[in-house]
Design a protein around this nucleic acid. Structure first.
Length: 396
DNA sequence: AATGAAAGCAACCGCCAGATA
DNA sequence: ATATCTGGCGGTTGCTTTCAT
């Protein structure tokens, strides 16, 4: 139990991936999709287990990965999300496009925990350390509390942390200012919450920003464009009617063993049609200069031509958000908590949509589609995905 | 320059849940 | 109903790089 059958097989390579292996895997997945991961290594000619291939793709080869150092805003977001979600790294990662759960987990364990302790905040409970010590002194029987550190207790202290984060953000670096500037543009482009623009012009209001981002998530993984906007090669495309928006960007791949960007943009045979667009959809207005003739689209941008107007009221009334939405969009919960709104217990059944940061449309065998499509070939499902994309964009 | 410690990071391990045979 | 397979997640390990002495 616990060990996958593929791991029993002999002669499977372990350890670091070579560039040749990366290229094999990348070529295979971009051409056929991953389909059943257990069959990927055989089809791709790799001496690896499917699990290893999956991990390598998710954590390193995915074309929508951002990489690079985390911005101050990203760190703050992670801290706040951790206060709400605990060690649910995948859910936290879902709120940070281009970041992997592994990356965030590493950051947390190696850096953020330490930072919080230095600020006098317990990284587990998100409470002030002094308070924790007092509790320990007053009540030695705190084992249960430690274990249940849960979210309500963490949330009750969230304001402390928020204040700290806000004060830190008020002294944010130039880079962070740039980040906000771009984010502001993004917000305007989205036309989501009217109050957002005003608030963004003032102090950094995380909750407002989260809500805006959450709206984007809710409408199809179009989220956190600001993180892409921090890239010098970002192209923002907005719809003047404020009902749809788009952010076209080129991938930054400087830290990679080989230049995926150049591969993707210069070698059409290496790239499936759905990955590459020669030009943005005609219905969109391009308001920034394009540095590359070929533009990559983040998988998290799939479905970004959406009508947000139907969602904003829901977000503006977080109290109407059901638990399924809280689970789906933790920022909704965070926003509700910040507004002192009641969060009712989890209903017995939740039938929520789960955002897939990779984009279920792009990769045919996401968790929620896998079993529906497992009977069909990966080629067929990929074709369907392209059809979906065509439907979403009108044309490719 | 050498060396040990610390930090950063990639990858593996073990477990779980859902789907399928 | 049960066993098996598979994808996914969080915890952990171990290697590499950076830093301090």
């Amino acid at each position: 139990m616990g060990r996958h059958s593929c791991c029993y097989k002999q002669k499977l390579r372990k350890g670091l991936w070579s560039p040749e292996e990366d290229e094999k895997l990348l070529r295979h997945i971009t051409k056929y999709g991953h389909g059943c991961w257990s069959s990927v290594p055989k089809q791709a000619g790799l001496q690896r287990c499917g699990k290893s291939c999956r991990l390598r793709w998710i954590n390193y080869l995915r074309p929508d990965l951002k990489r690079g150092t985390f911005s101050q805003e990203e760190e703050n977001l992670i801290i706040e999300l951790h206060a709400v979600l605990g060690n649910r790294w995948s859910q936290i990662a879902a709120q940070l496009p281009g970041r992997t759960d592994n990356e965030i987990k590493n950051l947390w364990n190696s850096c953020l925990k330490k930072k919080l302790r230095q600020r006098g905040i317990d990284p587990v409970t998100h409470k002030p350390l002094s308070e924790i010590q007092n509790n320990n002194n007053n009540n030695n029987n705190n084992g249960l509390e430690e274990k249940s550190q849960g979210q309500e207790k963490a949330l009750s202290n969230d304001n402390n942390e928020l204040n700290l984060l806000r004060s830190e953000s008020s002294n944010k670096s130039d880079a962070a200012s740039s980040y906000d500037h771009h984010h502001h543009q993004h917000q305007q482009g989205q036309g989501l919450v009217p109050t957002t623009t005003t608030e963004m012009e003032g102090s950094f209001d995380t909750t407002t920003r989260f809500m805006a981002n959450t709206c984007s998530d809710f409408m199809g993984n179009y989220n956190n464009m600001s993180s892409y906007a921090s890239s010098s090669s970002t192209v923002t495309v907005t719809d003047n009617n404020s009902n749809s928006c788009c952010n076209w960007f080129t991938q930054q791949t400087s830290s990679r063993p080989f230049d995926i960007n150049s591969d993707f943009t210069s070698s059409s045979s290496f790239l499936p049609a759905s990955f590459c667009y020669k030009q943005p959809p005609e219905c969109l207005h391009q308001d920034m200069n394009v540095k590359n003739t070929t533009t990559m689209v983040s998988s998290s941008s799939w479905g970004l031509v959406t009508d947000c107007s139907s969602v904003s009221p829901m977000l503006m009334e977080a109290e109407e958000a059901k638990w399924s939405e809280y689970l789906q969009n933790p920022m909704l919960m965070l926003a509700a908590v910040h507004n002192n709104q009641e969060i009712k217990p989890l209903p017995p059944t939740t039938n929520h949509l789960v955002p897939d940061t990779l984009g279920a449309m792009m990769l045919p065998h996401s968790k929620h589609q896998h079993h529906q499509t497992s009977q069909t070939s990966s080629t067929t499902t990929f074709s369907k995905d392209i059809q979906n994309l065509t439907a979403a964009f009108g044309h490719i």
